[in-house]
Write a protein that binds this DNA or RNA. Structure first.
Lengths: 109, 109
DNA sequence: CGTGTAAGGAATTCTGACACG
DNA sequence: CGTGTAAGGAATTCTGACACG
């Protein structure tokens, strides 16, 4: 029971950051920052250029949505960790609620 | 009955030429030349950079093999056209034989 | 015919830092 | 905390052309 399908190409790291920006609507700054916070893990080419897979792109779109909902990168980091431990359901429910509350108060400002 | 599978990502043109070189072992020059001969059709980014799909990469590896077998780009061009017309079998058989003969004589030189 | 290469320019990407808040 | 930006450098990509054969 895998969450992401194992189509030969989805995990190949071949897309450079500019193209990822176009696909996700995120800025380079945001994408690099999410890497710094260990939410995504691009490969590096010989000369040091970041290379992303389609699954990275999917992950980034998910991250973008959750950030909009008011979650913090630390929340998303925990989510990734707890996914590994199989405790996803209860954890993410809390975070979903917290995010929605955050978003609510942001709009009220 | 499609020859290439329709996995969401295989046809997305997101790979830049340098990465295609790494994936195929071909030079930039060769890849651009095969485009000039209308064997592949990359997209262009806003600023004019070529973007290839995984299916383009597969096509290039096929092209590379056939060029090694002694076929010419014009042969491969015909092959593509005849594929569209559904006359693939007889045509490609001739070309295969021609290619093998060419390769044979090349080695004899 | 198919491919290498030098040429010059334009666009891409990288890092570390300052800024705001 | 998350993101924008200016800075300077290095690597990428592009086109048109000459070369060999």
């Amino acid at each position: 029971m895998l969450s992401s399908s194992d189509n030969s190409y989805i995990h190949k790291k071949v897309i450079s950051i500019g193209t990822v920006c176009e696909l996700t609507g995120l800025s380079e700054r945001q994408i690099r920052y999410y890497e710094e916070r260990e939410l995504i893990f691009p490969k590096r080419s010989n000369k040091g250029n970041r290379k992303y897979s389609f699954s990275d792109v999917e992950a980034l779109m998910d991250i973008a949505n959750k950030m909009e909902d008011g979650l913090q990168t630390s929340d998303l980091r925990k989510e990734i960790t707890s996914k590994r431990l199989g405790e996803q359901k209860s954890e993410s429910k809390e975070q979903m609620i917290r995010g929605q509350l955050n978003a609510y108060f942001k709009r009220r400002q």
